[in-house]
Computed example of a mutant assay.
Amino acid sequence: MKKKLFPQLWMYFVAITFLLMVIVLTVFVCLLFLINHFHLLSPERDDHLFPFYFIIFLSLVIGAVLSIFVGKRILQPIGDLRQAMSKVAKGDFSMQLEEKHQIEDVAELYHDFNVMVEELSSIETLRNDFVSTVSHEFKTPLATIKGYVQLLQNEASESERQIYLERMLDGTQQLTHLTDNILKLSKLENQGIGLDFQIFRLDEQIREVILFLQPKWEQLNLTLDLTLPRTEYYGNEEFLYQVWLNLMDNAIKYSQKNGSIHIHLTNDALGPTITICDEGIGMTKAVTDRIFDKFYQSDTSRKTYGNGLGLALTKQIILLHHGTIQVKSTPEQGSSFKLFLPNDPKNS
């Protein structure tokens, strides 16, 4: 691509200043030559001051032309940027500037401005989604607890009181689950470098999670297909437990009754690979593309329990171990999560 003659802003100022000096010098040299040749400054002439008036007029014309040029080419883009920044400061994040500009510095400045506005817009959207989602997640169990407290204040049988207390306990557990996930996610994002790593039995940890969730998968009469050979891994035991808990809980939650869940662990020189498959309701591609986003829930009716943080937390934990997580899913056929954890995170 051919380089422009004056691609940078400072070069425009240098060129304009130099051009101004050359023009003024040339004009004055020519005028002095004419004045000397025709003896125009002779006091005997009635119009001997005319050359001075002409020089002043010509200087004003040259100054006006150069001022218009500078304002049009250099100062106007800065003014447009100032107006755009003023609109962004008032909350208009749809503002975008035309990046095609002859001055390279101005084009880059406009590009950086557009990128900044896009980032601010995404942050504002995320903030709004966060506030609305968290407020909704807190509001629902709080309203439930409040309702059952009011019912307990009225006359009720012992069996009804027990039901109300159990449902109040469910509401408090939901709030605890939400706050725990938010705190864990914040800890991972801000303090992930300081995670405590140690050697532990990965296959035994997955078995512990399966036993912990036994009441849930037994209730649906699910069949578990397990391949868990002895595997030792160097990682953060606490947070990896959360990974298997989240993935297994989702596999059970979205499985059909009398279905199957397949959990396979393979180990090689690079590291263990874990695959968790279910035969549940599955997901569309639009859902799988956003499934690891914070607070994203494909079930907008909130008929299923959750707050959209489990898989975001899972992915963050895997990334902190320098691993990978992939998902494949087909509606009405089930979903498959494949995780890889490198034995040597530094060289992964």
Rank of each mutant, 00 (worst) to 15 (best):
D203H: 04
I199M: 14
F295L: 06
V117D: 00
V134E: 03
N36E: 08
F212Q: 02
E124F: 14
I16C: 01
K315H: 02
R167C: 02
I325P: 00
F50E: 10
M21Q: 13
T179I: 08
L40F: 11
E166N: 15
D293C: 02
S132C: 07
K2S: 10
N114S: 07
P229Q: 03
D278S: 06
F6S: 04
R302Y: 14
P51Q: 06
T284C: 03
L195S: 08
Q316R: 13
K338G: 00
L183H: 10
L224R: 04
V287Q: 05
S157N: 10
Q219I: 03
F292N: 02
A64G: 09
F69E: 06
I16H: 03
P331L: 10
I281K: 01
H37W: 13
C30L: 15
P7L: 11
F38W: 12
L49F: 10
S86K: 11
M95K: 13
L165I: 09
S255H: 01
L240V: 11
T273A: 09
Q96W: 11
Q174I: 02
L49V: 09
V327A: 03
P229N: 06
D105H: 13
L270K: 14
D180C: 14
I206R: 00
N267C: 07
L247S: 01
I199N: 15
K139W: 11
M116Y: 12
E232Q: 04
L75T: 11
S301R: 13
A89E: 06
I68F: 07
G63V: 14
K328H: 14
Q256G: 12
P229F: 11
D293Y: 08
V115C: 13
R161K: 15
P7Y: 12
L151Y: 05
H321F: 07
I318D: 06
L34R: 04
D92P: 13
T288S: 09
K139R: 12
I276S: 00
K3Y: 13
P141K: 03
L151G: 05
L224G: 00
H321L: 11
F200Y: 07
K257C: 06
I35F: 09
G235T: 01
V65Q: 11
T176D: 12
V22W: 12
V14K: 10
N128M: 15
L320D: 06
S94C: 04
L309F: 03
